[in-house]
Design a protein around this nucleic acid. Structure first.
Lengths: 236, 236
DNA sequence: ATTATTAGTGTAAAAAATACAATTAATTTT
DNA sequence: AAAATTAATTGTATTTTTTACACTAATAAT
């Protein structure tokens, strides 16, 4: 027994993978391996398979691309204009992933020709992928203003100046460092380590790490991390 | 030219339609007209058609159900477990709509047997529709804490006590009325009318209306309407 | 030893949020 | 007509949060 007389569609998942290298935000792109638009830069995506949910499809695709599992991954929005793919109608559901660039290993499988691009130097992307990235970035700004999700971008140990650079980069602004660190420390998510990062200054900056227990308790809690007027454009 | 060897799927849109009658929140449900689960209560949904986007499909479905156009409607989340529909795999994308109950006309087409149910007296719903509603409600709580979207639920003219009841109902709490009205008036979204609603009290409460110009400028702006500790669960 | 560079820190003022209760307007009852 | 009832309306003082602002500390390079 089936639903008869209804059209069936190709459904794809496209992953918008953001990274942060301590200085700037980057986006992970691949060179598309098949026509149309072969060799053009593209988000990592793939067709949904018969026995997997969309979440599972997104995890599978991300694992293929990065070799990583258990990374931050969240459904964002569907893209479904009938002619968005010139070959055939494809309904795309996008997912946003946040990963620590340093954890990323160019995988077993280098078939994808994946590359990190600084957000300010993105190449032309296929189809509506540019729009997907823009919306994803806006939503990330919105979300990160209330929930401490940007920690997903950081390595185990990071410094307060790195943390601040990360937030300043997302909102394209400068924060006063006394007020910023006071705010972030007041979340109780940070544990001060004993050693310092000496790479970026003579004095060296103490490392901090995420208090994972606190984080798990708090990540779903709403906090005002960033002044609301910094959030400008699209949002959920 | 087509993408060969890929499985195609039925894609449906399901609409979670919230209303508020001045006292309590309600959900618009229909009795499903075909098997399986014929006659059971269900969200209003339908299959995506070949030449429409998902947004267009949602608008079409909502128009069929309510007779209304140009109502608040936003994509929420996909639901895609392979066996969520016992007949055949269907990937559902949900939309949330907010409508003024008083504008709703039981349509030309009464075929759907649509009915408003108080949120606290929902019947058993088919498939995963109950989960959809729960998630939608959580996301509405989140969103309404920052953007003045609940006005979509109100008629042209409403009173401050009604407004407060609406917010208190969503967050299942009580607000101090001096503080609450001060907060809402400070948004500059409200215009005081000359007449009063005499239905719910002897003294009568002045009507207010939405300043539509201000609203259009402000609706995408983030404001802290509700204390953050009132927001508990799911969010975008 | 001096210089250069970035990390780290405290306080006062302003703004926002909260706690709190008496008065007013109109209808209903006596 | 007076009294009682009911819900709407209104202000202030206190606490909390946010903002503005500048000097000292540590180390490497010269």
């Amino acid at each position: 027994m089936k639903y008869s007389n209804q059209t069936r569609f190709l459904v794809a998942v496209d992953c918008i993978v953001f990274g942060f290298d301590g200085t700037e935000y980057k986006l992970l792109l691949i060179q598309r391996g098949f026509a149309p638009e072969k060799e053009k830069w593209s988000l990592m995506g793939g067709f949904v398979q018969p026995e997997e949910s969309l979440d599972e499809a997104a995890s599978r695709i991300l694992k293929q691309l990065t070799g990583l599992q258990d990374i931050y991954l969240e459904e964002m929005k569907s893209f479904s204009k009938p002619n968005r793919d010139p070959i055939e109608r494809v309904i795309a559901v996008t997912y946003v992933a946040l990963i620590d660039i340093k954890k990323y290993q160019q995988q077993i499988n280098d078939d994808f020709h994946a590359r990190w691009f600084p957000m300010k130097e993105l190449p032309k992307l296929i189809f509506d992928h540019q729009e997907m990235v823009e919306i994803a970035l806006d939503k990330l700004r919105y979300k990160a203003a209330f929930q401490p999700i940007l920690f997903e971008l950081l390595p185990e140990k990071f410094t307060l100046p790195q943390l601040q650079t990360m937030y300043e980069g997302l909102y394209n602004t400068k924060f006063d460092k006394r007020n910023f660190t006071r705010k972030l420390l007041s979340t109780n998510l940070l544990k001060k380590e004993k050693d310092k990062d000496k790479l970026s200054s003579k004095k060296g900056a103490f490392y901090y790490s995420l208090d994972v227990k606190q984080y798990k308790e708090t990540v779903l809690t709403i906090q005002k991390i960033i002044p609301l007027h910094e959030i400008t454009a699209a949002r959920e």
